[in-house]
């Protein structure tokens, strides 16, 4: 498995001199107030934004220099507001994740239909969707749909899973379940990078937390260290304190 490294990332008005090396097998949470540059950073890490300065490398190779499909085979990306244009079935939706593997006829990376079907089956099973595979996406609940979209990314079997606020619009139980499923993916050696708004979720479930403020990294490390109450209070401009013990911490806010 290969590291995903950002060097001196700068996007005018959004990111300033971001240096970050992400390790596979970990769940990294990117947090920060609105407008801090979280989504921009994630899109850069996915190789989706043209950079003026700086570079993102995956396994030592610059993403910008990789052919788009090769990049897509390494990095799976789940955007913040995913749309589904047609009322496809869950299985069809998930199978779209195999597109990077279905290029030119004689390409060495090209997979067979049987291999694609097996990958789709694994992704459906990992997201606990096997029973719903034939259901149209318009008939899914919010939680099921979020899992189906995550399964679409998993089906591509990328080394890196990048998700922008995957827990938005999910209730507590579904959010916890999705995080557990993503943690299991990290346990299998994938790199998982999540943009999160829920600081307690980041504190309790991430291996590493990166805090962004106005386009700069202001803290980066294990959750207990990166999300200490004083820093949260300063960056989010609230009075925050953590309650509870490791793994079950809750954030309490006082008057600013």
């Amino acid at each position: 498995m290969t590291a995903l490294r950002a060097t001196d990332l700068t996007l005018p008005g959004r990111l300033t001199g971001v240096d970050l090396t992400l390790r596979p097998g970990e769940v990294t949470a990117i947090v920060g107030p609105n407008g801090a540059g979280k989504s921009s950073l994630l899109a850069c890490l996915a190789g989706l934004l043209a950079l003026e300065t700086g570079a993102v490398t995956c396994g030592g190779e610059a993403l910008a220099a990789l052919p788009p499909r090769e990049r897509a085979r390494r990095i799976g990306y789940l955007p913040q507001t995913p749309e589904i244009a047609w009322d496809v079935s869950v299985e069809t939706l998930v199978s779209l994740g195999r597109l990077p593997w279905q290029g030119a006829a004689r390409h060495p990376a090209r997979t067979t239909p049987a291999e694609d079907a097996a990958a789709v089956d694994r992704a459906l099973a990992a997201m606990d969707l096997s029973a719903l595979r034939h259901r149209p996406v318009s008939h899914l609940s919010g939680g099921e749909r979020a899992r189906a979209l995550a399964a679409r990314v998993l089906a591509g079997e990328p080394a890196w899973l990048l998700a922008d606020e995957p827990l938005a619009n999910l209730d507590l139980a579904h959010a916890a379940a999705l995080v557990a499923l993503l943690r299991a993916q990290a346990g299998e050696g994938r790199g998982v990078v999540l943009v999160l708004h829920d600081l307690a979720m980041a504190m309790n479930r991430a291996d590493r937390v990166v805090v962004l403020e106005r386009g700069r990294i202001v803290a980066d490390g294990p959750p207990e260290q990166a999300l200490e109450a004083a820093l949260v209070s300063r960056v989010w401009q609230v009075q925050a304190c953590w309650w509870g013990g490791p793994g079950t911490r809750a954030l309490a806010l006082g008057q600013p």
Partner: peptide, 14 residues
């Protein structure tokens, strides 16, 4: 097919 999921996802799919 890639565009079914919107432009950002389509680009991320190569």
């Amino acid at each position: 097919d890639a565009l079914v999921l919107g432009e950002a996802t389509a680009r991320s799919l190569g």
